[in-house]
Design a protein around this nucleic acid. Structure first.
Length: 352
DNA sequence: AAGCTAGACAACCGCGTTCCG
DNA sequence: TCGGAACGCGGTTGTCTAGCT
């Protein structure tokens, strides 16, 4: 529901002046950060309450940090791979950054960087893997598919290895290789996230099913909460591959938990299993975070222990764990290169 | 020097969720 | 229980600026 002020009253828009900033700061110092809708009235600002909140949270609250360090970059990439475009959660792991900062940095820098390195920024998979998947989902022979459908993929791949960079923008725009929001993927994404949380919060006590190890995706939608999240699609494959990787790291002696607990079949699922998944979500406010009213709202939002656990699980499970000694991207590229070596026909088509 | 373009960042908007009377 | 208000998030758009032609 939109606050009336944004529609009816003629509010100022555009860049904020120093005087306006001062009024916000003064107000927050005196009254805290609750009840933003009353801020324009109390301060005399001709801005709607939402704009005031945005201005404060994006610029006045935290010290301005602009340059992202290499560590921050890598963290953003890992987190995006694990949970998708949940900028608010990602920003919480980066002190002094706002969701808007992270989002802008992703859109302007990191997306391009990944594309130039031959990695699809949406799925976090090497273009070559996507090529292979194209190949596996139809009856068209490899040669023609690789040649006609995925030229740009291949171009992007070549350029990632020292080729013509500028073309990549064109590629990334035209590619738009968002994963199809197949029901199974939503479902799996949710399950993988739940699993990652379980891994940390309850200890390493499960064994992965071959289903996840194989990385296929065929389950029907499990719950409305899973399919309602549009961002779930962007992190689908990576989230459960992260969980899978985590699973593979667990010693086999810890196997009292089974993936089958979460293999929910829509039609045949017993009621208790649905309930279990729902409880999981309700307990930790894991996917949505937790909203509180009052002065501490901004601080507490999404800072529920379970969401932190989830982040830790995702990082622990990511391919570029500190022990590997290489970055997330490097690791991905290495595997990508191995695959190209294994499937030489991917190189054969001429480039345009 | 002027116009154009692309990049970076700030701000806005729509939608879903939560709160509260 | 319901509906309106408030809020947060993520996507999109707007604005400014630096670099290029």
């Amino acid at each position: 529901m939109r606050p009336p002020c944004c529609f009816k009253a003629r509010m100022d828009r555009g860049p904020w002046s120093e005087e306006e900033d001062a009024k916000i700061l003064d107000h927050v110092a005196k009254h805290g950060t609750g009840d933003w809708t009353s801020v324009p009235k109390k301060t005399g600002l001709r801005r709607c309450g939402r704009s005031c909140r945005l201005r404060w949270s994006n610029h006045l609250k935290a010290e301005a940090k602009h340059e992202f360090s290499a560590e921050e970059e890598d963290l953003v990439i890992k987190l995006h791979a694990a949970i998708g475009s949940r900028w608010a959660i990602i920003a919480q792991q980066l002190p002094g950054r706002t969701d808007n900062d992270v989002k802008n940095y992703w859109n302007t820098k990191l997306k391009k960087k990944l594309t130039e390195k031959g990695i699809d920024p949406v799925t976090h998979r090497p273009f070559s893997q996507i090529l292979r998947d194209y190949d596996s989902i139809g009856g068209i022979p490899t040669q023609s598919r690789a040649g006609s459908i995925s030229k740009e993929l291949k171009n992007a791949f070549y350029m990632g290895r020292g080729g013509m960079g500028p073309y990549n923008n064109h590629i990334s725009q035209k590619m738009a290789l968002k994963p199809e929001p197949s029901e199974g993927c939503y479902s799996l994404d949710l399950l993988a996230q739940l699993q990652a949380i379980k891994l940390v919060t309850e200890g390493p006590s499960f064994s992965p099913s071959p289903f996840f190890i194989n990385g296929s995706c065929s389950l029907p939608t499990a719950s409305p909460s899973a399919s309602s999240s549009s961002s779930a699609s962007s992190s689908s494959s990576s989230a459960y591959s992260a969980a899978t990787a985590a699973a593979q790291e667990i010693p086999s002696t810890h196997n009292s938990f089974s993936w089958s607990e979460f293999l929910i079949e829509e039609a045949s699922l017993p009621h208790t299993e649905h309930a279990k998944a729902s409880e999981f979500l309700a307990e930790g406010s894991v996917l949505q975070g937790e909203t509180k009213k009052g002065d501490e709202e901004e601080v507490h939002h999404l800072h529920h222990p379970s969401s932190d656990s989830f982040i830790r699980a995702c990082l622990q499970a990511s391919p570029s764990s500190p022990s590997s000694g290489s970055s997330f991207v490097e690791d991905m590229l290495k595997r990508d290169g191995d695959m190209f070596m294994a499937i030489p026909e991917l190189w054969e088509e001429p480039l345009y």
